[in-house]
Each structure stands twice: as C-alpha cells, then as structure tokens.
C-alpha cells in the first residue's frame, strides 16, 4: 500500500526542506520513495506544492486529486486550495497562519473566513495548530516547516530517532538546535 503526502504552502516558507526531510526518513525505512518539487518562478511568493510518495514501488511522482492520504499545509488558504487532492478519510495538518495573497492585499478578493471549520464541514479530518508561534518560540519564523514535520512524525509509524537523524543531516549545524526545538514543539503540540 502506497502513502501519498502533499505539502502545500507559500513560496519561501520552506516546503522543500520539509519534503527532503521526509524523503530521507522514508528511504531509511526501506521504502521506495519519490518527491516532486517546485523550483523557479512559482517559488517567488506563489502557491507551491511538493509531493512525497512512499511504498513498495512508486511510479508517478505527483499526488493528484483524491489521492493524498495527508496534506501538510503551511498556510490556511493553501490547505483549502488543495482540499480536492485529499482522499475521503484523509487527514490535513494545517498551520493556521494566514498570509494574504496579492489579490487580497489589493482588495480584489477576500480572504475566506472560518476555513478550519469549513474544511471539517467538507469532511476532512483536520489537525490545526499555530505553527508560526511555535516556530517563533523555537527561535525563528522559518522553522514552521520543522514544527509541522514534528506533528506528522507522531502520525506516521516511524520512530523519533529517524526523524532527528534526518533533521541533523539536512539542516546547517548552527541552526540544528533551533530546528530540533521546533521539532519537539511540533511533537508536543500533536500529543496535546
């Protein structure tokens, strides 16, 4: 049985690092793994998605409509945008931070209200948390990605040491303590 994870967010939020941590952890568990990333123009503050798929044998690197077992959303609107990618019974882990897109900033559109509730009403299993505050508590707003990885780590059947090992391997040494704190805060938030 393959597992499909979709990571959505705003360009610059660090979704790539999150997918790479996942990829490393999963490869270490002996799975076949594929990641699909976004580089280039859409990275500049646009809506970005990366996919992580693992299992016995993975072909397509992308996670399409109705295929995601998990959506890890770095921003609330970016959770709602990709709800159609969630399979019935799938779970969304969402950072409740709101980043206004340009049409909202210019007044051409409105940021929808009560999105967490609306996602639940649509049938999604939603884990909502303020990952930005936890990242700031860990020491830097950019650690939102590792906070969310911490939450996901409590749901996937993989021991904690593997996650810590992958973070150590992929994060620059001077930022390691900060990121491990962020990971712990994510784990603790998930267990609450």
């Amino acid at each position: 049985m393959n597992t499909n994870i979709m990571i959505s967010g705003v360009g610059g939020q660090g979704t790539l690092l999150a997918s790479r941590i996942l990829g490393r952890v999963l490869l270490g568990q002996g799975y076949d793994v594929k990641l699909s990333e976004v580089h280039g123009m859409s990275q500049r503050g646009g809506s970005v998605v990366t996919y992580v798929k693992f299992g016995e044998k993975i072909y397509s690197p992308i996670v399409d409509e109705g295929e995601a077992d998990f959506i890890l959303a770095f921003e609330l609107l970016e959770a709602a945008r990709y709800l159609s990618h969630l399979r019935p019974g799938g779970k969304i882990i969402v950072n409740t931070q709101q980043i206004d897109p340009m049409p909202v900033i210019t007044g051409a559109a409105k940021y929808p209200e009560n999105l967490v509730q609306k996602l639940r009403d649509a049938g999604a299993d939603v884990v909502a948390l303020d990952a930005l505050s936890l990242a700031l508590e860990a020491g830097n707003a950019k650690a939102v990605n590792v906070v969310l990885i911490g939450v996901l780590s409590t749901i996937l059947p993989i021991e904690e040491a593997a996650w810590r090992g992958a973070i150590e391997a992929l994060v620059p040494a001077k930022l390691l303590d900060l990121n491990l704190r962020a990971f712990d805060l994510g784990v603790a938030a998930a267990k609450q």
Binding site: L83, S84, P88, K118, G123
Partner: peptide
C-alpha cells in the same frame, strides 16, 4: 475527492 464550496483567491 472532497469539495469545498468557497472561492479561494489565487
């Protein structure tokens, strides 16, 4: 798939 009846700004 799941469906949300909401206009999501681009």
């Amino acid at each position: 798939s799941l469906y949300l009846d909401e206009t999501i700004p681009v």
